[in-house]
Amino acid sequence: MRKLLILIIPLLIIPAVVVAGYIIGRNSYAFVSALVVLLGCVPFFLAFEDGNNSGRRVVTLAVMTALSVAGRFIFAPIPFFKPVTAMVIISAMYFGSGFGFLTGALSALISNFYFGQGPWTPFQMFAWGLIGFLAGLLSDPLKRSKLVLILYAVFSGFLYSVILDTWTTLWADSGFNLTRFLALTATSFPITVVYIVSNVVFLLIFTPLFSKKLDRIIKKYG
């Protein structure tokens, strides 16, 4: 049943929602996009449920998520220094793409328990999830070359801001209004740049440390 759903949701249900939204009319953009994004997260959740995940993997996922959420509090005294994206990327690099998606999606969900849930929650979940998923696919080049790591940190900063600005535009205009999108992107640009810089700094420092930490744990506990 679950295996079937993992296939049916992206192949049938999401297209059906989009077509239904098209038939209902132009005012349904925001609702349809929120629904599509939520449904997009479901196959990853189902795959995690189905997969052969031992207790250790479950707890590790919880710890990585908790670390990225707690990081938002810990670095609060340093303005704009948020390690969430970097923690999601690291988690994906060392534990795989599905794991990365879940770290991102759950970090968004759980940190919004503290910072406020809203209609943006599904989009944050999807954006961070996607960043984690892609990092998992690219894990080998990311581990090997610092340049790729920096480029990916820059890319993920942009991806996050593009996804969230697209949602704001769709919500505000019941359609894609390029002027508003560009204005939003321009206003959020300085913050995006600061985020990107903090991501790069964080990743460059923590990626080598993290592999050392994991090696140590594998040696200690097997």
Binding site: V59, A66, L106, I110
Partner: peptide, 16 residues
Amino acid sequence: ASPKLAAVISLSLRLV
């Protein structure tokens, strides 16, 4: 619907 995921969420809520 998803007991493993629920375990993850309650664990991380406790860990934060």
